[in-house]
Design a protein around this nucleic acid. Structure first.
Lengths: 275, 275
DNA sequence: CAAATAGTGTCTCTAAGACAATATCAC
DNA sequence: GTGATATTGTCTTAGAGACACTATTTG
């Protein structure tokens, strides 16, 4: 009946308007700051990658890396391609955040975007090296939930500070929607995409799903704990963390060295196929 | 740098190929069967709505309700519109399941689809009435996970039985991907979409997010428990369920009647703004 | 009364939180 | 030794599972 309308013999794809489709990537990294003194561990910050736009619209504004879906690739492949192009690092994981399809979200016309969160280890970025003058920069993220669903998203990179205001909407099924009150200068609806990606990342960090990819293959449990604390913006008691993480990791025989305090054992992520 | 490529001044949306975009909806209902005898409660089954395709491709095959995204609407609005057109009932909720963008998933050409799961209460469908000869039918769902990620999806509606075989792929971040081994006659990649939607539904049922919408405004705790058991395919001890559900519901003064056994108190879902 | 479901009480077991105690390094 | 982190042990507490018991209806 109604389905005839869309799927009838006479339906030609070309006869109907089609939107442009993009994939946007929120690339997350947990960065360590300089150590305060020789025996302290370094502080860590959650940061995301932004690109300074060279063309219209939003010329000169900061935006998420992303680009148009090309024939023959899946949306996920597109996101992976864009993330790799921008960071020169292939992210360990891509998690779907949602589809952003508000008409009017792009001044150029009808453009819908599939958003993905990706996790990049600091180590892999170090190997590539970064350019301070580049139009791609890592911004430290602060995300605060106020009362009545009001949220503040703050992005910092050296002197640059972007402050966006968002309204958290009817949260359901784990997913949360955000409406932009003040984009703070971010391009398009990227403030809302970042907020949604953060929510997904935090959700995934609860059961340790998303925390391993921030670290190299071998890591200390303290570092792993710090990743979770940084992402979720909480503090955890070490004893509790160690109890829970135990089943997901395997000991190695190696230890850290030269940290000015007791060495820590290095662990590896447990693979599903036994130790 | 690389971003120039896509966002440069000269980029015209029309100059580049665009996919067609559809929204597909997996409409879930928990249906009660006829009672075995006057004092037993009725059994319940999880079922989904399928449409018999009248046009090419996959003419005569069963498919999910869905249709093309139209200018000026969001993907979610499109899904809501399609769900409403097909069932004559506006679903209580829509949860995003994922984007399906495999090239070649649609023989007509380049078509990507945003999938949504929706929940429909049996009560609301009863009011509209159903047509046995209609091309829209509710199918009982059985989904079984075998060893090594092999899954079997079985859909039954009277004499009609659809059996699909799927392979569960590297599950991460709560989301699970499915590859179709045997579509069992379902159109497009809809077997994979249904499996993914089921996973999302079950995930949401864990914390009671998705179970209330299956029932009318007032319900018994036993009915609510049965919904969760039906969706997740488990059995729960009543005492445990009642303890946990307590904080999400509010008592009413009403009771069931004429069931051949002790009457049950009716409850209402607790709203966030107090009782 | 019998059959069936509704609803409560309580014991146990597990897992998480809290916190104290011990170990080990670089300087 | 001092300062810092690593790592373990144990007490307490909250919550889930198990199971038994009571309550209430209709034919």
């Amino acid at each position: 009946m109604q389905s005839e309308k869309n799927f009838s013999v006479g339906y030609r794809l070309e006869d109907y308007p089609r939107p442009s489709v993009t994939a946007d990537v929120v690339a997350f990294m947990v960065r360590s700051q300089a150590r305060e003194n020789y025996k302290k561990n370094s502080e860590t910050r959650l940061s995301i990658l932004l690109i300074k736009r060279g063309g219209h619209p939003f010329r000169g504004c900061w935006a998420l890396p992303g680009g148009f879906l090309q024939p023959g690739e899946t949306l996920e492949e597109c996101a992976l391609r864009e993330a790799t192009e921008e960071t020169s690092v292939t992210p360990a994981s891509l998690m779907p955040v949602g589809v952003f399809s508000d008409p009017g979200r792009d001044p150029r016309g009808w453009v819908i975007s599939g958003a993905y969160a990706s996790i990049i280890s600091e180590e892999s970025v170090r190997q590539v090296g970064g350019d301070d003058a580049s139009d791609a920069q890592w911004f430290d993220v602060t995300f605060e939930r106020g009362g009545a669903g009001e949220c503040r998203l703050e992005l910092c990179c050296g002197e640059i500070r972007i402050c966006a205001a968002l309204k958290e909407k009817a949260t359901r099924f784990g997913r949360t929607d955000y409406t932009i009150r003040d984009s703070g200068g971010l391009a398009f609806d990227h403030a809302a995409i970042i907020a949604a990606a953060l929510t997904v990342l935090r959700e995934g960090a609860k059961d340790f799903d998303t925390i391993f990819d921030f670290l190299p293959e071998k890591f200390t449990l303290s570092a792993l704990q710090k990743v979770q604390e940084t992402i979720m913006n909480i503090t955890i008691l070490p004893a509790s963390f160690r109890r829970k993480i135990g089943e997901y990791v395997v000991e190695t025989d190696e230890f850290t060295q030269g940290d000015g305090h007791r060495p820590a054992r290095l662990y590896r992520k447990k693979t599903d196929s036994g130790s």
